[in-house]
Simulated assay, not measured.
Amino acid sequence: MKKLKAFYDGFSDALRSPEPDAVPSSVTDGYAHRFAIYRNNVHRGLFDALGAAYPTVRKLVGDGFFDQLAKGFVQSETTRAGSLALYGVGFAEFLASHPVRDRLPYLSDIARLERARLEVSTSEDAKPLLAEELGGLEDQLEAMTLRAHPACQVVASEYPVFAIWNAQNPVDGNEVGKTSIVQRAETVLVTRPYMQVEMRVITHGQAAFFAALTRDGLSLGAACSHALEADANFDVMASFATFLTIGAFNARLNIPRGNGHDDA
């Protein structure tokens, strides 16, 4: 077993090595060129998988520079999932510490947004909470707690990531043109209400409300109070209706005990 582990470790180290002529000790000189071909094919596959996962990042930096970023990312990995479908975990963090941040400080947040889109698109299916399912529970709403839908994520950024993403991905396949982008912080809610990924910018108050509910486990009443502290202009009813409409909540409810209803 030790010899087998040494073989795999050496093979893996040679694949990740920044030296183009790196060859595992288990490969004889006469087969070094075959390993080089295999290594190049593996790297090309990883580069392409990363580009498919982060197409907007690729558009922003160009194909050539993206391949350089991909090469650095591949060499930096210590672990890797066996499937390429969700390849690229940690790419946003890699970009955040890369010198490219000096020129494109928003690039890592664009990567976080694209990662959220990818994970939301492949998340488990679950029934979203609909407004009509709350009928008859009006007296319990204030004390009720809610869970985020599994196909729902929030990405907060100091930069206008939603506007930048939209500028690079115009609707109806139109060509990318010059777009005026207001420099401001944006928080984006990513959901998949009807088997299609959707994004929308939410306000500071809405972000505070959603986080208080789904991350901190506060009741609806407490979450509303928290949101109003964060944003005095927070519209409770309109915001709650928006979250319900876009399928941000899981249909499984936590209804307070002692009200004649069982937990759904």
Results as ranks from 00 to 15, higher is better:
M1F: 01
A6P: 00
Y8G: 01
D9T: 09
G10Y: 13
F11G: 04
F11Q: 06
S12G: 09
S12L: 09
P20F: 04
D21Y: 00
P24I: 06
S25W: 02
S26P: 00
D29M: 05
Y31M: 13
I37D: 07
N41W: 05
F47H: 14
A52R: 15
A53T: 15
Y54R: 06
A70E: 13
G72Q: 08
F73N: 10
V74Y: 08
E77W: 00
T79G: 11
S83T: 14
L84V: 14
A85D: 12
V89H: 10
E93W: 02
P99Y: 07
P105C: 08
P105V: 02
P105Y: 08
Y106V: 02
I110Q: 12
R112V: 08
L113D: 13
R115F: 00
L118K: 03
L129Q: 05
L129H: 08
L130F: 06
G135P: 00
Q140R: 05
A143T: 03
F162T: 02
F162K: 11
W165T: 11
P170L: 05
V171G: 01
V171N: 11
V182Q: 15
E186G: 03
E186C: 05
V188W: 06
M195Q: 15
E198I: 01
F210V: 02
R215V: 15
G217M: 07
G217K: 07
S219H: 10
L220E: 07
G221M: 11
A223K: 05
L228F: 05
D231W: 15
D231C: 12
D231E: 15
F234V: 05
S239L: 00
A248C: 10
I255G: 02
G258I: 12
